[in-house]
Design a protein around this nucleic acid. Sequence first.
DNA 1: CACTTGGGATGACAAGTGTTCGCTGACTTC
DNA 2: GAAGTCAGCGAACACTTGTCATCCCAAGTG
Lengths: 231, 231
Amino acid sequence: MFADFFTLRWSKSANSCLLNDVSHTPGIRQAQKQQSRRALLDAGLLLLEHQNLSSLGVREVTRTAGMSPAGFYRHFRDLDDLGVALVEESLASLHGMITAILAGEGDADQLIDRTVDVVARHVREHRAHVRFLCRERHGGVQPVRAAITAELDAFIVEVAAALGTQEQSAAWSVADLRMLSGLYVEHLVSTAAAFLEAAEEAPGAEQRIAATARAQLRLISLGRLHWPTVG
Amino acid sequence: MFADFFTLRWSKSANSCLLNDVSHTPGIRQAQKQQSRRALLDAGLLLLEHQNLSSLGVREVTRTAGMSPAGFYRHFRDLDDLGVALVEESLASLHGMITAILAGEGDADQLIDRTVDVVARHVREHRAHVRFLCRERHGGVQPVRAAITAELDAFIVEVAAALGTQEQSAAWSVADLRMLSGLYVEHLVSTAAAFLEAAEEAPGAEQRIAATARAQLRLISLGRLHWPTVG
DNA sequence: CACTTGGGATGACAAGTGTTCGCTGACTTC
DNA sequence: GAAGTCAGCGAACACTTGTCATCCCAAGTG
């Protein structure tokens, strides 16, 4: 995500937008700015571990980022703005995870095992991002909520398209594919949330969550196999 | 929920707890206190429509409840305390809904249709409660989060027990029953959340959500029918 | 009836908040 | 090199906040 943004600003501007075209300035200054921006985002992510976005304060964020309060406004209009930036970041990493899952080969059970493993690892490696998404998906800040919902819907469409190429559901209607995809994505999110909570209490809980998630995915697979196609 | 609490305090104390035994005092005073308490809870519920619990303020709540700030502390130690009270209230109403679902007769498809209808109606009639639960389930206030998780886990056990009595899954192991039950409860919660958002935008969205939820439940039912029992 | 109880209001306290202003100084450009 | 840009700072604004000591008076008690 950060890389995308960076190269976006760096690429010779093929678009006609001149307003923010600063691609002619060499690196140092921009890099410093991006570093500060990153510090703000990380500070937000850190504070959101025990808080909600709607209770976050500008001064709080800048303080933990080691910056003066006024500096915040050089990067974000609002705290909502920072929130939306965090959504983009978090969902970019999650998108990588989903493509990793969908690209896999093997029979159904292998695919299920690998899926759960990938989710568990993603939660372990991107704990703050996952927590942010789960916490603000139904949170009190409307723009952030809308952004998460929109991107998650895009995932559903993407997963539905991928499911359409699988032999198990080749003859399915588009609506049914999207229905199944929605079930999968929802299950994925709730499994990630379970992993999140699990790691904060019992150490063996992660195994239990994984086993349950695998069984649930197998049950859904069985349902898929016997789903009446309209053909 | 309120009625339970009320009658709890009113019933002649068969328990041995003398600490809070005020059952000998006649009604007016207690009723006034309960009325104030209710006003605080309702104010909280109202404010939480556009906020998160962690960003709620004592003054804010008392102001919209028409009360002085100090009055709050006559009823709750904290805002977290108020949050936990709201959890109990919200999950009591949800518990009624679940028993209403489980008590039903009829074949699988009828049961699915009725389930989705009951959920839709519950969301319509207890919007604030449902919103609160969805919002704070993964929210930033640990005690509230824990309370919701605990009560939801109790629901899962209850639903699992009910599923064990159904002929479709009579031979299932306890672990499998709980796995299936978890899938159902998770699906129920996410469907309720979807209804919640749906009502705030497109008017026809509710029908679409309901249709998708029914299809997903049917698919899970198919999976159930073909689940390998250890027999 | 006098007397106790306790829910609620008032007012005050220090500590925190979002946001804006003008300034500085390192980086960039010409 | 001189000129200019602009991220970050310090200070100040006018609030809002949680919490408490204190008083008040309706409800309950004997």
